[in-house]
Design a binder for these strands. Structure first.
Lengths: 257, 257
DNA sequence: CTTGAACCTCCCGCGACGGGAGGTTCTAGC
DNA sequence: GCTAGAACCTCCCGTCGCGGGAGGTTCAAG
């Protein structure tokens, strides 16, 4: 009899919180949402938790430590009298979620690492420059999918930094030659501008992959320039409105051919 | 004049959302919290965003893509006219946060991986067994710090699974020899029980590190058993109430020596 | 019998929006 | 000028897992 009484212990909410390493507030919450209610109450309304409640709480805490939501926990603790398969599926799904998160966090880490490197270099002179880098990143993300960005980065790595710089320089030359035509409004079927634009396109093509994927990436780049020429142009050494006019003009030249 | 008008474009909220890859709702939110308000309104109250607003939005999006909170973003966009150091500190802190998260996620992944492995083995017969494993994990986490658990795991790895199994078997033998004494209530200073308990303690010591750290881990294990002998005992092949009595008895024997 | 700790219920708060209700305004076609 | 439908406006409730406080009651020890 006394042995039985010793085993059938009851816990107040504070005792349970201390015994399980949670807080009283969390236990109120579990009670509210029906995840873990005290099996008994005293006459005055104080919660009395039984040993069964304590065991349930340990299960709840263990499953939460695995990252499951309270709703998922309520699910497995309720509907699976001995359904291991439900549990397996839930844990597998949870693992899959975590792999996803780990991937995202890793990409973010690399980005932050790169940015911090740039900040430590002398290569980043002021906040404005840095912000412009960020803006450009943001615009890129709006127009290119993750895979497309990876492709572009890979392509740049293949070509090597020297080739990229040379392409940039040649592109600057092209812009320099084209701007006067824009201002003079040279007819869009003039062989001189057609030649310049075809060299322009060839220059861009070097950065895209071959085949259908490359075409889609090119189309995305085109949309980006059409929508944002004013904004992207600000990053360049010419007045933004001239760049807007230039992009529009180049588009008309392409259409004419 | 007409050129200026062309440059000073305005965007409606929907246009801005499409141009930046966000949602109208998010823009309302940014307006509400003062992070990005439309510089102008039409006579009827519709928002008109200027090019400056668009640029600010790109910055906001870029910083959000790095995982910064809207509050942090408002901070750097407001108080740093050209303060690169604030930015650097913020990004460094963010990177540190991410490292933390990556660590937690990695540990969770390993745990989930291990659990799924056990589920796929024939080693996990039913849900109840599995839940008990989880409960035990939960209790361990309540009483041992992360480092202490790592230490214990390392120690077990050092000893090797064969030694661990042998220790378990010898401990089972000890319990088998001690239980009759508990039931008979053999005096706690009887040399036979003192010998049994000292062998018990020696067995446990093999799993703890030497020095002060090991002592703290032992103390934590002691607290765990004292608080939870009924619950932990259920996992063992003897009745739970006998285990409770046993733990209490062993405690008295230790005190007597 | 008192006092302080523990307990009770009810309610607001976070962060970054999503989504809906219920109303007004813009825009294109007739 | 009229109408329909798209776009816009403001206000408000919901998310998830509690934290924290107000304002009151009950318990346990001295």
């Amino acid at each position: 009899m006394s042995e039985k009484d010793a085993v059938e212990r009851r816990w107040s909410i504070g005792e349970l919180a201390r015994a399980s390493g949670t807080t009283v507030r969390a236990l109120y919450h579990y009670d509210e949402i029906g995840l873990l209610r005290a099996s008994e109450r005293t006459a005055s309304g104080h919660r009395r938790y039984t040993e069964g409640d304590l065991r349930r709480l340990y299960r709840v805490r263990a499953l939460r430590a695995l990252g499951l939501s309270l709703e998922e926990i309520a699910g497995v603790l309720a509907d699976s009298p001995d359904d291991l398969e439900t549990m397996r599926a839930l844990l597998a799904a949870q693992l899959h979620d975590l792999e996803d998160q780990a991937g995202r966090i890793d990409r973010l880490r690399q980005r932050l690492h790169g940015l911090l490197g740039k900040l430590d270099d002398a290569s980043m002179p002021d906040t404005d420059q840095f912000m412009m880098t960020l803006e450009t990143m943001s615009v890129f993300e709006t127009y290119f999918t993750q895979e497309q960005q990876d492709q572009l980065a890979e392509r740049r790595a293949d070509l090597g930094p020297a080739a990229v710089e040379e392409a940039k320089a040649r592109w600057v030359d092209l812009v320099g030659e084209l701007l006067p035509h824009v201002q003079a409004d040279t007819p869009v079927d003039d062989p001189r501008v057609r030649d310049l634009v075809s060299r322009w396109d060839a220059l861009g093509s070097a950065f895209h992959a071959d085949g259908e994927q490359g075409e889609r990436t090119k189309a995305a780049a085109q949309r980006m320039w059409d929508d944002n020429s004013a904004d992207l142009g600000r990053r360049l050494p010419w007045p933004a409105d001239q760049m807007v006019a230039l992009v529009a003009y180049v588009g008309r030249v392409r259409q004419a051919s």
